[in-house]
Design a protein around this nucleic acid. Sequence first.
DNA 1: CTGTATCCTTAGGGATACTG
DNA 2: CAGTATCCCTAAGGATACAG
Lengths: 145, 145
Amino acid sequence: MKKNVADSDRRSHCAISMALDAVGDKWSLLILRDLMFTDKRSYGALQSSEERIATNILASRLITLEENQLIRKQADPEDSRRYLYYLTEKGIELLPVIIELMQWMSKYNPEASACASNARAYKKDRAGLYKEMISKLKKDHLPGK
Amino acid sequence: MKKNVADSDRRSHCAISMALDAVGDKWSLLILRDLMFTDKRSYGALQSSEERIATNILASRLITLEENQLIRKQADPEDSRRYLYYLTEKGIELLPVIIELMQWMSKYNPEASACASNARAYKKDRAGLYKEMISKLKKDHLPGK
DNA sequence: CTGTATCCTTAGGGATACTG
DNA sequence: CAGTATCCCTAAGGATACAG
């Protein structure tokens, strides 16, 4: 089985360090954000986000995210030439990280907008919020059993 | 007042994007981790971490973190030549992000160690845990009122 | 020990052209 | 539209020397 990050690229076995090795770049979490908070599923839709990711970077990140098993690439049943990108359970479980980042930034910088997020994220208690949103994401992204 | 991130460097006003612009690099969160979970406060102590950050990178990150008001640099009362680094409230409030990253990585990669963290972090409910740990960090890092 | 400064390498990333 | 491929460049980062 493929390792998430090559041993040679891993700086330590610290969980935080390893997590940063996987999603600590400038783009991965933004792609996951779009998959979590919008209905963007195709290459073109993901590319159209406000931050204007370059096409080669997007392609590269999608490969890495799939290698790390954070997303899943599935043939579009309606158009055999294209793929749709879905979160895996592992990717879905990053939701709390993204929510906490959003809440933190919003607290300290009033210019920050909720962006793709659901405004309700700012009101409910954490545990309940996570549970509810993760449950919905699983419905949308995980293959039916 | 200085902006946290120059407008020209900001990719969008999305809270997540802005947060990543501030701490989305490979080192900032590791430095904050050490300040949160260990008693490392000096330059040399921070440099001695397992990941072996290069001295120029550490210096550069400490400057950026201070500019972004995540840490505070204070003259060491016992040695006027050196400084000690403390978290600010804004820095302390990143604790949930770091905890969630740790928990996520630990769940999906058994090789991940708790590293500098407190093992209790894995057991208690989130809200209570954050509150308790943040309270302790404030005692240790914020100047007395 | 606490940093600065310098040199150098590489990976990340932007622009753009191109293919099916 | 959905990507690949190429070119190029800058900033991040590593190694190391040096200064107070």
